[in-house]
Amino acid sequence: MIDKYLKQLCDNVTDAHSRIKQDFKEIDPVVGVSQKMRDSGIAADVMTIDCLRSGKRIIIILHDQQPNIVSYQFTFKAQDPAEQFEQTPLAELSADKLYDWMESYFS
């Protein structure tokens, strides 16, 4: 079952994704959610937002221990992520902010 924090993140990404697809047909991001880190004993969910055209990726991690904080990184699909992630409060990761991230990073 998706907890309320992951649902909030998914709802915001869905809204941003829909608007990006409408406003920027060339971006057409692909969103994925994985809970496979849990299989390795890491209590976190991972969301990826990929731009297939550019090969760029946004990684968002929602840790169980800090559900109000998300870790994120702007990277590339074909590369392993760097060790250092930025952090932001989940409450500040609005649909508008996610839209801005996709527009600026994927354009």
Score class of each variant (00 low, 15 high):
Gln87Tyr: 07
Asp64Ala: 10
Phe74Tyr: 09
Ala78His: 15
Ser71Asp: 12
Ile27Glu: 03
Leu98Asp: 05
Leu62Gly: 07
Gly55Phe: 07
Gln84Tyr: 14
Leu9His: 03
Tyr5Phe: 15
Tyr105Thr: 02
Ile42Gln: 09
Ser34Tyr: 03
Gln73Asp: 06
Val33Ser: 04
Phe106Glu: 01
Leu9Cys: 05
Ala82Met: 12
Ser94Pro: 01
Pro67Asp: 10
Met102Glu: 02
Phe85Glu: 11
Thr14Phe: 04
Asp3Gly: 15
Leu6Gln: 13
Gln65Glu: 14
Val46Trp: 09
Leu62Asp: 05
His17Gly: 00
Ala95Gly: 12
Pro29Tyr: 01
Val31Ala: 05
Trp101Gly: 01
Asp100Gln: 12
Arg38Lys: 15
Arg19Asn: 08
His63Gln: 13
Ile49Glu: 06
Asp100Tyr: 04
Ala16Asn: 04
Asp45Met: 12
Arg53Trp: 01
Val46Lys: 15
Tyr5Gln: 11
Ile69Glu: 08
Ser40Gly: 12
Tyr105Asn: 06
Ala44Cys: 15
Phe85Arg: 07
Lys25Ile: 13
Glu103Trp: 00
Arg57Lys: 12
Gly55His: 06
Tyr72Asp: 03
Asp23Ala: 13
Pro67Phe: 08
Phe74Ser: 04
Ile27Pro: 10
Trp101Ile: 05
Leu62Glu: 08
Tyr72Ile: 04
Lys56Arg: 14
Met37Gln: 11
Asp39Ile: 11
Pro89Asn: 12
Asp11Gln: 11
Lys97Trp: 06
Ala78Pro: 04
Ile69Leu: 04
Ile49Thr: 08
Ala43Asp: 15
Gln84Glu: 15
Lys21Trp: 14
Gln66Pro: 02
Glu103Phe: 02
Gln22Leu: 09
Gln66Glu: 14
Phe24Ile: 05
Ile69Arg: 03
Trp101Leu: 03
Ser40Ile: 10
Lys4Arg: 13
Ile49Phe: 07
Pro29Val: 01
Gln8His: 05
Ala44Glu: 11
Val13Cys: 04
Leu9Thr: 07
Glu92Tyr: 07
Lys77Val: 05
Asp45Glu: 14
Val31His: 05
Ile20His: 00
Ile59Pro: 00
Glu83Cys: 04
Thr88Trp: 05
Glu92His: 09
Leu90Phe: 08
Ser71Met: 11
Arg57Val: 02
Gly55Leu: 03
Leu90Asp: 06
Gln84Ile: 15
Lys21Arg: 15
Gln79Ala: 10
Thr75Asn: 15
Asp28Val: 07
Tyr105Ser: 02
Thr75Leu: 00
Gly41Thr: 12
Ile2Gly: 00
Ser54Cys: 07
Val46Pro: 08
His63Pro: 04
Pro81Met: 10
Asp100Glu: 12
Glu86Cys: 08
Ser107Gly: 06
Asn68Ser: 15
Lys97Asp: 02
Tyr105Leu: 05
Met47Gly: 08
Arg38Ser: 04
Ile60Thr: 10
Gln22Ala: 07
Arg57His: 03
Gln65Leu: 12
Thr14Arg: 11
Glu86Gly: 03
Gln35Cys: 06
Lys56Gln: 12
Asp100Cys: 03
Leu9Trp: 06
Asp28Gly: 01
Gln66Lys: 14
Tyr5Ile: 08
Ile69Trp: 01
Gln22Val: 02
Ile20Gly: 03
Gln65Phe: 13
Asp64Thr: 11
His63Arg: 14
Arg38Asn: 06
Gly41Gln: 10
Lys56Ala: 06
Leu9Gln: 04
Ala91Ile: 13
Cys10Phe: 09
Gln66Ile: 09
Met102Asp: 00
Tyr5Trp: 15
Asp3Ile: 08
Ala82Phe: 10
Asn68Arg: 13
Val30Gln: 07
